[in-house]
């Protein structure tokens, strides 16, 4: 299986503090991966590097079959080639309707002139309706996103991610602040999504990770500490030391 994303030997420092230390990571085209690690392990910085927000001091990040380097691309360009990111806090455009949010995310040319000439086709309309229905917001298309509940916003954001049709999804703590039922629904959905594309989930909640039933990468102090199934890594003494050693 060729890797969709290949991160190798990446390091980055902030004011002398090594946030990421010679980190290597790769993920296949249709794979679900969970990343766990204590606070300050470098999970967010890792995602920042992939999405172009932070430039690493050294190392390489390559993408796709033709191994394009992501290091010289802007955030927007990286998003356009097919990497979607979901933040921990739901970030939807609260002043716009659910439909407008989805249309914004819908895969389409992104330059200003295309936006000026944009016409919503029947196909697009159907896609918006389908995405909304998929996340249970079918009845809320005309509502402003700001009026939605916290969970609904999470769902809307996931729908927006899907509308982008990314090949790789980076998801930061999707379960945070969700009810038990919602968690189950989310789990099912993530597993479903990962059948056709790569999904990286950053999560604290071990129970949630267990339910995802996928390969797990443990980050610690900016480097990969262990990788494998959840059972495999939880038996790893180094992981136990990091997680349990601190109480």
């Amino acid at each position: 299986m060729t890797a969709l994303l290949e991160v190798s030997g990446v390091s980055v420092s902030f004011d002398g503090f090594r946030a990421i230390n010679n980190l290597s990571f790769s993920i296949g085209a249709a794979e679900l991966r969970a990343i766990i690690g204590p606070n300050g392990a470098g999970k967010t910085t890792f995602m920042d590097i992939i999405t172009g927000k932070t430039r690493p001091d050294s190392g390489s990040v390559t993408w796709g079959e033709r191994a394009i380097s992501l290091l010289n691309l802007s955030e927007a360009a990286i998003a356009r080639i097919g990497i979607g990111r979901k933040f921990q806090r739901p970030t939807v455009f609260e002043d716009q309707t659910v439909a407008e949010n989805l249309i914004l995310a819908l895969k389409s040319p992104r330059n200003p002139f295309a936006a000026l000439a944009f016409v919503l086709t029947g196909e697009g309309r159907a896609r918006v309706a389908a995405l909304a229905a998929q996340v249970g917001l079918g009845a809320h298309l005309a509502r402003k996103a700001g009026e939605l509940s916290h969970g609904q916003k999470q769902w809307l954001e996931i729908a927006m991610l899907l509308a982008q049709e990314p090949r790789l999804l980076l998801i930061d703590e999707p379960a945070a602040g969700m009810t038990l039922a919602e968690r189950e629904q989310t789990t099912a959905m993530l597993v479903g999504i990962a059948r056709t594309r790569a999904v990286v989930v950053v999560e604290h909640d071990m129970e949630f990770v267990r339910r995802l039933n996928c390969r797990v990468t443990v980050l610690h102090e900016g480097a990969v500490l262990a990788e494998g199934s959840l059972d495999h890594v939880t038996r790893n003494p180094a992981v136990i030391e990091v997680y349990l050693g601190r109480g």
């Binding site: 902030f14 004011d15 503090f17 946030a19 910085t45 927000k53």
Partner: peptide
């Protein structure tokens, strides 16, 4: 100010 504290 550099690093994460500076935001973007």
């Amino acid at each position: 100010l550099r690093g994460r504290a500076a935001g973007d």
